[in-house]
Design a protein around this nucleic acid. Structure first.
Lengths: 217, 217
DNA sequence: GGATGAAAACTTACACCGCTAGTTTAAGGG
DNA sequence: CCCTTAAACTAGCGGTGTAAGTTTTCATCC
C-alpha cells in the first residue's frame, strides 16, 4: 500500500493508541510493531509522524501531564492550591501508572510539564517564598506525588502469606493488595497533609513576618 | 569452552558487574550479552546462575536496598529513626539512581526490601501508631524517598535557556542543572522536615494521649 | 494543466534483544 | 570408576528499534 488517499495516521491517533496499549499491557509491552498493528498499519509507518519511539513516549507523557489542573494557582492561596494541584497531579498519574516511570524523569522539553512547573513556581514566589525555597517546595511535592504514583505501595507486596513468615511484623502484609485503594489513598492523604502542615509552619516562621506591610497599598 | 576448571561466574560477580553497568550506562543499556561480555563470557552463560534477566535485576535491586541502615529503629525514637532511615535510604538510592525505577515497584520477594519494611512498620507500631496508620506512614515516606531518588529534580530540566523563554517564571531554570546537588538536597531536607513535623503534630494529637500510663509498669 | 516535490504508506534488512535447546567437558559423590 | 550435575559453549527463534529505498498520492507552482 502506497500513500493512501486519506491518511491513516496522525500524531493524536498514535498518542491515544499508545497510551491505551501502555495502560493495558505496560510500558515494556509497547513496541512500534504492536502499536502500528493496533493502528492497522506496518511498524515503520510510525516514523512518518515521529522521529523515534522516545518521541512518541514524550508525547504520551505530556498528554497525561496536560490533564493536571494548574488553574488552582490562580484561585486559591498557596497551601490550598498546592493541596489541590497535588491531588489533581496524582489523579492524572494514577490513571496511567505505567507511564509514570518515564514521565518521572523530569519535564525535559515537554510543554505541558514545563507549563506546570512554571505555574507551581510562580505561585510560590508570588506568595512570598524566596526563589530557592520555591524550587525546593515544588521539587518536594513532585517527589511525593511521583513516588506515590510510581507503583502502588500495596501492589508492591505479594499475596503469599508464607513469604512473610520470617518477618515478625509483616504477618498481615499479604492482605495489603486487597486493600490497595484505601492503603494508597490513606498514605497519600496522610503524607500530603503532613507535608503541607510542615510547610505552613515554616511559612509562618520565616516568610509571613516579612510579608506584613510589604503588600500593595 | 566447556565447563572450566575454575568457575568463571558466580551470582555475586554477576550482580556487581550488572550494577556497575547500570550505574554507568542506564537500566536500558543493560543487556545479557553486554553484561556477559563485561564478565568475559557469552550471553547465555548467565542462565546457569539466574533464571531470567529480571532475577538478575531483583538481585541488583536488593543489593542496593541492603545498604540501607535499619538499625536506627532500635536506637532512636520513631521521629529521629524515620529521619535517619529516610536519609540512609535516599543515599543508597541516589548512589544508583538508574536502578530506582525498577526498585520502586515495591519489595516484591526481595529479602532486604522485606526486612526494611518489617523494621519500619514494627518501629511505628511499637511507638503506638495504629497498624493502618503505621502502614500509611511507611508508604508516605517511601513515596517521598523514591520520588526524590527517581530522577534528580534538577537534572530533569534542560540546559537550554531558549526553551524557557515562553514561561515567565522559569527564566532561571536552565541554571538548575548547575546546582543539581544543592537543589536536590535542599528539596529533600525541606520535604523530610515538613513531613516529620506534620507527623509529629498528628502523633501529639492522636496517639500520645492514649500512650500516657499505658506503658510497661 | 502538466511538472515537481513532499508526504505517507509500503517492503526489506540490519544489528541487537531475551531466552531455549542441545553439546561438551570438568567436578564431585556413591 | 561411573554417573550425575554444573558451567561453559554454539546455534537459533522470534521479537525489537529504525534505516533505506520504493510506490503512489496530494499540493503547489509555472
Amino acid at each position: 500500500m502506497p500513500r493512501p488517499r486519506q491518511a491513516l495516521l496522525n500524531r493524536d491517533r498514535i498518542v491515544e493508541t499508545a497510551l491505551a496499549l501502555i495502560d493495558a499491557d505496560g510500558l515494556g509491552a509497547l513496541s512500534t510493531r504492536r502499536l502500528a498493528a493496533a493502528l492497522g498499519v506496518q511498524g515503520p509507518s510510525l516514523y512518518n509522524h515521529f522521529a523515534t519511539k522516545d518521541e512518541i513516549l514524550d508525547a504520551v507523557a505530556d498528554s497525561v501531564t496536560a490533564s493536571v489542573d494548574v488553574s488552582v494557582f490562580d484561585r486559591y492561596d498557596w497551601v490550598e492550591a498546592l493541596r489541590r494541584w497535588a491531588r489533581s497531579y496524582r489523579e492524572a498519574l494514577a490513571a496511567h501508572p505505567n507511564i509514570v516511570p518515564y514521565l518521572a524523569q523530569g519535564p525535559g522539553r515537554r510543554p505541558a510539564a514545563l507549563a506546570m512547573a512554571d505555574a507551581v513556581y510562580g505561585a510560590l514566589v508570588r506568595a512570598g517564598w524566596p526563589p530557592a525555597r520555591a524550587t525546593h517546595i515544588g521539587a518536594a511535592l513532585r517527589y511525593f506525588v511521583a513516588g506515590s504514583a510510581l507503583g502502588s505501595f500495596a501492589r508492591g507486596f505479594v499475596e503469599d502469606p508464607e513469604l512473610y513468615a520470617a518477618h515478625p511484623h509483616l504477618n498481615q502484609a499479604h492482605r495489603l493488595r486487597g486493600h490497595q485503594h484505601s492503603v494508597d489513598e490513606g498514605a497519600f492523604t496522610l503524607g500530603l497533609d503532613a507535608l503541607l502542615h510542615g510547610l505552613a509552619a515554616e511559612y509562618a516562621r520565616t516568610v509571613a513576618p516579612l510579608e506584613r506591610g510589604s503588600g500593595p497599598g
